[in-house]
Simulated scan of single mutants.
Amino acid sequence: MFVRIVKMSFNVSEIDVFLKNFNANKHKIRAFKGCNYLELYRDKNDTNIFFTYSYWDTETDLETYRKSDLFKSVWSKTKPLFNAKPEAWSVDKLESLQ
């Protein structure tokens, strides 16, 4: 399991624009080949900071998504809304307890 974590910080005035774009595309992202899981989180103390967690079969699947028209469309609408450079981590899931 390959996990991608992305931290995004938005201008307060742009949060609704981001959420509308995310909601319009979340099912398409989740349905993309190789994507098994997608979540959006919001920081409890700094509410202009959001995180996405997505689980991918392979790193190649993530890279295919990042080169897709879907990603380019979503990212082109998201990128201008930031108030800080986004950060991203690619990690391997070692354990999951439920």
Rank of each mutant, 00 (worst) to 15 (best):
P80N: 04
A84T: 08
E87R: 07
K67M: 12
K93G: 06
F82I: 03
L94I: 11
L70H: 05
K77H: 11
D92A: 05
T60P: 02
S68D: 06
L62E: 13
W75N: 13
L70D: 04
F82T: 00
R66S: 13
L94Q: 10
T60G: 15
F82P: 00
K93L: 12
L62P: 01
V74Q: 01
K93D: 06
L97W: 09
S73P: 03
T64H: 09
E95Y: 09
L97F: 09
K72T: 12
L94T: 12
T64M: 08
E63L: 15
Y65V: 03
T60V: 15
P86H: 04
E95W: 11
E87G: 03
K67R: 14
D61K: 10
K72N: 13
K93W: 02
K79W: 07
K67P: 00
W75G: 03
P86A: 03
R66E: 14
W89L: 10
S73K: 14
L81G: 00
A88K: 06
R66Y: 13
D92V: 07
L62C: 13
P80Y: 02
S73H: 15
W89T: 05
S96F: 07
L97K: 11
K77L: 09
D92M: 06
L70T: 06
D92T: 07
R66T: 13
L62D: 10
E63S: 14
S68L: 03
S68E: 07
P80D: 04
S68Y: 01
S90L: 07
V91C: 07
L70W: 00
K77I: 03
K79Y: 11
L97Y: 09
K72D: 13
T78C: 04
S73M: 13
D92Y: 08
P80I: 04
E63V: 15
T64V: 15
D69N: 12
K77G: 08
S68W: 02
K67Y: 05
K85A: 05
F71R: 00
K93A: 08
E95G: 08
V91Y: 00
S96E: 10
T64C: 07
N83P: 00
A84V: 05
P86C: 03
V74P: 01
S73D: 15
K77P: 02
